[in-house]
C-alpha cells in the first residue's frame, strides 16, 4: 500500500541546508496500522508530506496504492486522507461547513457530504460546536475537527500527523476507539506519527522509530522491546557473596546480558523475564542461594529508543545539529 525507497529531503535555509530526511525506505501492507515515532525534528512530518504528495522529495521514490506519488499525484490524493500537524480548519468558516466542503473536495455529492458530516460530528463529539466559527474552538476541539476532516471520505489510506496531540484523556480514548472501529469495518491502512509512547505501543502493530532523518528501527512493538531493550530483572540477596554466586549462575540464562552486581543486589536483562524468573529463583534456591526480593521492569519503547540512540525520548527536545 505504501512504499518508499530512499526518500531524501533537504531544505535550503539561509543558515545552510537542513537534511530533514536522509534515505527513508519503508513498506506498509494493506490494512496495517503503523506508528512513526521519533523526537522533535526527526523528520516525521517531512516524510509524511512526501508520502502524501505535498512535498516533492529531493531524491528517491514513493508509491501509494500502486501509484507513483511524483508522476500521478492526483490518483494518490484520491486514495488518501491526510491530517496534518497544523490546524486544517479555516478560522472564519463554520465547523459543519468545513466538513461539507471537505467532502465536496473529494467529489462527494452535497447530500452525502452533509450526512457524513453530521455522522462525524456525533462520533467526535463536536455537535454542540457544529455551527460555530472554527476560530472559536478549543485546541482539542480543533484537533478533533482535523481528524473528522481527514475521515470525511473514508479514505483507504489515512495519514495522521500527531492526531492526538492536545487531546484530553477522554478525547484521546474516544478518538482511538473510533479509529480502531473504523479500521475493523473498512480495513483502512493507517500511518500515524506520535509522541505518545504508550499510544504507539498499544495501538500500532508496527512501530517505526525515526531519528535524525533516518529510520533506526521497524518492527512489532513487542519484538522491538524484547530485542532491543529486554526485561530488566533486579534481585536482592542476603549477602554480597550470594549475589556474586547468583551472578555466576545468571550467565547460563538464555540471552542474559548487562549482568551487574551492586552490593547484595543483582541486575540483569533478559527476554521473556516473566517466564524465566520463577525457574531461576528455584534454581538459586537449590544451590543454597535465597532470593529476598525480585522485581521486573517491563521495557517501554522509550527504553528501545534509549538503547538505540543513548538518548531518552522523554528528555529530547530539539536534537543537536
Amino acid at each position: 500500500m505504501i512504499r518508499a525507497s530512499n526518500l531524501t529531503r533537504t531544505f535550503k535555509t539561509k543558515a545552510g541546508p537542513v537534511e530533514a530526511v536522509r534515505g527513508l525506505s519503508l513498506e506498509v501492507a494493506e490494512g496495517e496500522l503503523v506508528a512513526f515515532l521519533g523526537p522533535n525534528g526527526a523528520g516525521k512530518s517531512t516524510s509524511v508530506r512526501m508520502l502524501t504528495s505535498l512535498l516533492p522529495p529531493t531524491s528517491g521514490q514513493a508509491m501509494i496504492g500502486g501509484h507513483d506519488v511524483a508522476r500521478n499525484p492526483v490518483a494518490v490524493r484520491q486514495l488518501i486522507g491526510y491530517v496534518g500537524q497544523g490546524t486544517g480548519s479555516g478560522p472564519y468558516h463554520r465547523v459543519r461547513d468545513e466538513l461539507i466542503t471537505q467532502g465536496r473536495a473529494y467529489r462527494m455529492s452535497y447530500p452525502d457530504a452533509r450526512k457524513r458530516a453530521d455522522e462525524l460530528l456525533a462520533i467526535l463529539e463536536l455537535e454542540p460546536q457544529a455551527d460555530r466559527d472554527c476560530a472559536t474552538l478549543s485546541g482539542g476541539q480543533k484537533r478533533r475537527l482535523d481528524v473528522a476532516l481527514g475521515l470525511m471520505h473514508t479514505p483507504r489510506i489515512l495519514f495522521l500527523d500527531e492526531p492526538s496531540t492536545g487531546l484530553d484523556p477522554h478525547s484521546r480514548a474516544n478518538l482511538w476507539e473510533h479509529i480502531i472501529r473504523l479500521r475493523r469495518q473498512t480495513g483502512m491502512t493507517i500511518f500515524l506519527t506520535t509522541h505518545y509512547l504508550d499510544e504507539a505501543d498499544n495501538m500500532a502493530e508496527r512501530v517505526m522509530i525515526m531519528d535524525h532523518g533516518k529510520m533506526i528501527a521497524d518492527d512489532m512493538p513487542e519484538k522491538l522491546k524484547a530485542d532491543l531493550a529486554g526485561d530488566q530483572i533486579r534481585l536482592r540477596f542476603r549477602s554480597e557473596r550470594e549475589a556474586g554466586s547468583a551472578a555466576e549462575q545468571a550467565r547460563n540464562l538464555p540471552a542474559a546480558r548487562d549482568i551487574a552486581r551492586e552490593g547484595n543486589h543483582l541486575t540483569l536483562t533478559v527476554n521473556k523475564g516473566e517466564s524465566l524468573l520463577p525457574g531461576f529463583i528455584c534454581e538459586l534456591h537449590n544451590s543454597g542461594v535465597e532470593t529476598q526480593s525480585a522485581n521486573i521492569h517491563r521495557p517501554t519503547l522509550d527504553d528501545v529508543f534509549l538503547s538505540l540512540t543513548g538518548r531518552s525520548l522523554r528528555e529530547t527536545a530539539e536534537p543537536p545539529a
Binding site: S53, R77, G86, G88, S89, P91, Q102, Y106
Partner: peptide, 17 residues
C-alpha cells in the same frame, strides 16, 4: 497567509482538487 501558516491551505492541497 493565515491559512498558509495554520495548515488549512495544505489540507486542500492534499485533496484531489
Amino acid at each position: 497567509t493565515e491559512e498558509l501558516m495554520s495548515g488549512s491551505f495544505e489540507r486542500f492541497l492534499a485533496t484531489p482538487m
